[in-house]
């Protein structure tokens, strides 16, 4: 079967399709979150010791941190597609992703603070990862602020797209500079992620939670994009036929 993808780049075709998909994603998000959290909280071994149950926040913290970065990349992807092909729907997708991305960024910082309090004894430390995650949150906020400050939708979309692209270039530089404030000593970088050393049970529970977050992200982003379509296309015939409301 051959699918004509461009057919779905028109809001009129995209709107009903994602409307049907939202319940599925919502269902998976709920089922997988419950499953993943149950697995993570009760079915994984106590790796450290009985007193250190707090590590279990990892099942929310790490997937949220992953999502915050992936969603940024996806958002920039849509923004770039919009800049190249001048497709309105791509900008709507980018605009719909930003709040969810910012939410996950905030979630990872918040859970990180609690984890930090129990394990390091402090809510906040100027650790490279935390600081750059905070900067990512600021970049998300900047994107949303710029988008909503401009009345003309087209200019808002394009300006925000440029900003997200600049952010994409700058984020690695920011991460690098926070990670290595003294360039003379930069040969010894921060230890890498250590997924190999983690108990497979824990890893699987984390992956289930990640998929649950993805499903949630899809559901919410699709809902938001439908709202954006409703608002921006309110003068079009197809929408007035669909809703019976004349704007």
């Amino acid at each position: 079967m051959k699918i004509n993808w461009f057919k779905y780049s028109a809001p009129s075709n995209f709107y009903p399709v994602i409307g049907k998909l939202i319940p599925f994603f919502m269902f998976f998000a709920i089922v997988l979150s419950i499953g993943g959290l149950y697995w993570g909280f009760f079915q994984t071994p106590d790796v450290l010791s009985d007193q250190k149950q707090y590590y279990r926040i990892i099942f929310i913290h790490v997937p949220a941190a992953w999502m915050s970065m992936w969603l940024y990349a996806v958002m920039v992807g849509w923004a770039v597609i919009g800049l190249i092909f001048n497709t309105r729907l791509s900008y709507m997708m980018a605009a719909a992703i930003a709040p969810t991305g910012a939410m996950f960024t905030f979630l990872s910082l918040w859970t990180g603070a609690f984890w930090g309090k129990t394990s390091w004894g402090t809510y906040w430390d100027w650790d490279p990862r935390m600081t750059s995650e905070l900067m990512l949150l600021f970049v998300y906020i900047g994107y949303m602020a710029l988008q909503s400050a401009i009345d003309d939708t087209r200019r808002a979309d394009q300006a925000a797209a440029i900003l997200s692209l600049v952010g994409l270039v700058m984020l690695p530089i920011i991460y690098f500079s926070i990670n290595c404030p003294n360039p003379a000593e930069c040969s010894s970088l921060h230890q890498g992620s250590s997924t190999q050393q983690i108990e497979t049970n824990i890893l699987w529970a984390m992956l289930v939670m990640t998929i649950a977050f993805w499903a949630y992200a899809f559901a919410v982003i699709f809902m938001r994009v439908r709202n954006i379509i409703l608002q921006r296309e309110r003068h079009t015939k197809w929408l007035q036929n669909l809703t019976g409301v004349k704007a």
Partner: peptide, 13 residues
Amino acid sequence: KIQNLSCRRGDRL
């Protein structure tokens, strides 16, 4: 030469 030109301002055609 102008062909098939469409412009919108804001959300309005």
